[in-house]
Computed example of a mutant assay.
Amino acid sequence: MSYKNYPMVSRVVFGRGSFSQLADILAPKRLGINAPFIFLIDDVFEKNVALPSPIPTGYSDKIIFISANEEPKTSQVDALVEDIILTSKELPSGIIGIGGGTVMDMAKAVAIMLTNKGEAKDYQGWDLVKNPAIYHVGIPTISGTGAEVSRTTVLTGPEKKLGINSDFTPFDQVILDPELTKDVPKDQWFYTGMDCFIHCVESLQGTYLNAFSQTYGEKAYDLCCELFLDNTLAPEVMQDKLMMASWHGGMSIAYSQVGVAHAMSYGLGYVLGTKHGIGNCIVFDHLEEFYPEGVKIFKAMKAKHGISLPQGICADLTEEQFDAMINVSLSLVPLWENALGKNWDKIITRSKLRNLYAKM
């Protein structure tokens, strides 16, 4: 038997206030005065929220603010790469993503596309990237997606919503500073935290499960249950623990996979532009057939925090739109196989998927 030799984030800093160490971390990685660092930053930090320390720019470094209002697109990655190439004298010293899952996925994708020919859509899939990415750093400002530790970058392309899953995708360096998450709005905190919880449910109940993924998944699952069902924790403790739940949840799918909720959420995201976290919640709310205990706990968490999910988002879809959602969802074979086994396509039919989507 051949075992997959998975890469991981090689260096990580954890601690409240650790964002202030960014300058010291980047200094040895600068390749020259004409090789800039490119900072991709969630535009919330341009508009109404301040970062705790200044961005350590110098020479020809560049700050690009990224809107997280929509899911990241392959065309957006291509435009950023073109702009960086045209405005930089040399290949950048590195890409630094500061934000939530959208911004970190953008940073990973841009770092890859600066050293690989073609368009980002050409690399949507598994192990299609040929050349190592340039140095890239992830600094999450919201916890839950696991994007800071995963080997994928989820992008919406012209034909599908699918990640660039490769050994070159993971960050070279991650800074985990829980203080960066203190201003996250409650709804967003819940939806992104549930992304982590759903990761764990799907991984722990999947056919790909093994002791490696199970160990991480169980810890993240327990942390999520503590965080979202216990109201006695101090805010700082919750921030610390959710950041570690996100890390462990992301690690839980390194040797495993996600499942039904993520496969269907990708379809929603492709057709309706539904954000990943809330899309997972909308789907998971209807998956008692597949994850009865997980959905029961999810509903208890939702009630405890007074969260009302959007209803009827698929009510006015055309058959063409339903078909597009179903096509995207069914294309994610590893997710379905993990959820339901080798004969998953005998269980999940197009009509079954359509009926599930119609409930949402």
Rank of each mutant, 00 (worst) to 15 (best):
C200L: 04
L209R: 11
K219F: 14
F212D: 07
H199T: 06
I198N: 02
A211C: 12
D195K: 00
Y216V: 01
W189V: 11
W189A: 15
C200F: 02
P170M: 04
F171R: 00
H199R: 09
P185F: 12
Q173H: 01
I175M: 03
P178Y: 05
A220F: 11
S166N: 11
Q188I: 15
L162A: 08
N210T: 03
T215Y: 14
I198M: 04
T169Y: 10
L162D: 14
I198F: 03
P185K: 00
Q173F: 10
N165R: 08
Y208F: 13
P170Y: 06
T215P: 04
Y191G: 12
D172F: 00
S203Y: 05
A220C: 05
K219H: 09
F197N: 06
A220R: 04
G206L: 06
L176Q: 13
H199M: 08
Q173N: 06
M194V: 10
N165D: 15
V184K: 00
Q214S: 09
H199E: 08
Q173V: 07
C200R: 06
P170E: 14
D167R: 14
H199G: 08
F168H: 11
P185L: 05
D167A: 14
S213I: 07
T215K: 08
M194K: 04
G193N: 07
K186N: 13
E179C: 01
S203I: 09
I175W: 04
M194L: 04
E179S: 13
L209E: 10
I175F: 01
G217K: 10
I175R: 01
D177A: 07
A220V: 08
G163V: 12
F168D: 07
V184T: 13
